[in-house]
Design a protein around this nucleic acid. Structure first.
Lengths: 339, 339
DNA sequence: TTTTAACACTCTAACGTTTTCGTAAGGGTA
DNA sequence: TACCCTTACGAAAACGTTAGAGTGTTAAAA
């Protein structure tokens, strides 16, 4: 077991000073070529690598960024992480992933433990707990300390910072419009509870599309699911209402609907069109495969990382904040009819 | 924007020395109660938090552990990460996630950049590239530096370290036995290419189960899929062979088979039983829902984190290595018949 | 011959902690 | 009065690095 070699040890071996070694390794013009060669050879021989921690302490940069997400067992977030990872790695940053598990407390704890030097900046998607509580003091605190923060997907207007959001409203609008054009007359919506920002935007898009198509909005066709009784609530929708189109705000709701449709011998897409938000593996592998609103999670991740690192590395800090809107796209598969 | 306050600043304000402040905050008996109270009050007022980096440098511990996995967009690995996160957080550690993207080079780079002080230990599942290349120098190097390393799932015998593996052989064995008992006579296997360790163990379990049941092994019923031509190879299997049972080493293969079966109007499970390895969302939401071999990814993560942190915190290092075998369990759903 | 400049280094401080060692003041004992 | 022991605190080194300021030698310019 050979321990890591330090500048000091190299310096002692070669009988030069620590600073000479440090500078030699950086090809400083202050150091003679001979010495540079000698030091480099020795460093390579002993496989010298600078200690990241010491470097971080010195220049108050860690080259780490933290990503705080509500859940990792969720296709959208893993896509985002992949995107963040890719961009961050390309620019020499490591990614620390923390899970809030949709819990306000854990989100706060996570941020506090990391904000003390471990990282240079945050990328966060708010937990349900935080959105419900509307308590953003931990975000404010971090920003006040001068640490850049980027929010994505689940954002809030109450905090000023860089943001990356999905064009949820337009995504829903386009999905509904597509169904209308393909012949649907009564389109239902399965969405989440109200405190979730994205659900609201999607609901709005849904309503606008219906209005523009001259179809009256029927509140009985809108069901807000509380996660726990998903199957039951969908069952109720099918039992009490008639409809020939269905927009679901995530793929879980959509496959549940697909299942219910099959039980009732409703043919998809002949008798019922279904479109799901988020193009995950479920949608891609269901039967029939689902037409989806792709949110481009990977791109969201890349963009978030870019915004954050740009801010970290920007020379003068003109602190104006940007909001990037990532366009959705409709992926037509087998659960809808062609227009 | 108020910058972080340091010990030095507190010391200056209160007109005491830095060491007094440091000790006071730790309730050192060396410091008088009055001073302790004064310092603590001031620290709280200014929201003092010790700088993690400085602390890390001081005691050569970062309280960070790195997890290197091949892919994050994969249910099994996200489960493992959740397990690691949970255990690590409970013991005060942060988790740095790195993706190798199944690539040998990236795995090496990741380890090298992190091994220089940023983290205290590694948890890794080998990339396909590494398993194909059989080059483990980067692992050896890390271990030689005295940094603990835990391997999970995709491991190698060539490296001595703590390991957490799934009982793949027995999992496959039990799955096949279950199908035999429920009446299957000809059971096929869809597995991966040979260099992947887990695939081999599963194949072995499959063969053993058949032997024990007195069923001859027919190599034509074993198909090794190269990831790219999945659908086509499964199509070929169905076209050329007759079988009433099918074991797939992952859920993607299984849903592909399900799809092919439906196209051919083969009823699952009446005419064909299917069991899939890894109990992910696909298996849980397919139609019919799949009977699976659950690998307990969350538990694997927890165990890996436990082994690593135990090693990190153990007082004397009796360096003997443990291999924990996580038992699989068969989750019976709708794609097999009851015994 | 003196001044200057280039060269090739070394010294020192700094980043923010922790920790060991030292020591002054005060009180008690012999 | 001399000695010792507490109590309460400070100084300094250390972790490993970087960077600016300083230094000694030599050679070229004035």
């Amino acid at each position: 077991m050979k321990k890591k070699v330090t500048l000091k040890q190299i310096a002692k071996e070669l009988d030069v000073s620590v600073s000479t070694v440090s500078k030699a390794l950086k090809d400083s013009p202050e150091i003679g070529q001979e010495t540079i060669d000698k030091v480099k050879a020795f460093a390579k021989l002993y496989n010298y690598k600078p200690n990241n921690i010491a470097v971080s302490l010195q220049n108050r940069k860690t080259k780490n960024i933290a990503v705080i997400i509500p859940e990792i067992v969720h296709h959208f977030f893993t896509k985002v992480i992949s995107g963040i990872e890719k961009h961050a790695n390309e620019r020499g940053y490591n990614v620390i992933v923390c899970l809030s598990n949709e819990d306000f407390e854990k989100e706060v704890i996570n941020m506090e433990t990391l904000a003390n030097g471990s990282i240079d900046g945050f990328i966060i998607s708010l937990s349900k707990g935080t959105q419900r509580k509307k308590d953003y003091h931990h975000l404010r605190e971090v920003i006040n300390q001068g640490m850049p923060l980027v929010m994505f997907d689940r954002v809030t207007d109450e905090i000023y910072c860089d943001k990356v959001v999905v064009d949820d409203g337009r995504g829903a609008y386009n999905a509904v419009r597509h169904m209308v054009r393909s012949g649907c007359k009564r389109i239902a919506l399965v969405t989440t509870e109200e405190y979730l920002s994205v659900g609201n935007y999607r609901t709005l898009g849904y309503k606008n599309a219906l209005e523009d198509a001259g179809i009256p909005i029927d509140e009985k066709l809108i069901v807000r699911i509380d996660d726990i009784n998903c199957e039951k609530q969908i069952f109720e929708l099918f039992r009490t209402q008639l409809f020939d189109g269905l927009l679901c705000v995530n793929e879980y709701f959509a496959v549940a609907a697909l299942r219910e449709a099959r039980k009732r011998n409703i043919d998809v897409p002949r008798q019922l069109s279904i479109v799901a938000f988020s193009d995950g593996i479920l949608a891609q592998n269901s039967f029939p495969r689902l037409t989806t609103v792709n949110q481009h999670g990977f791109e969201i991740g890349e963009t978030s990382a870019k915004l954050l690192i740009d801010k970290l590395e920007e020379v003068e800090d003109d602190s104006h904040y940007r909001t990037e809107v990532i366009k959705t796209s409709l992926i037509e598969r087998e659960s809808t009819n062609p227009v």
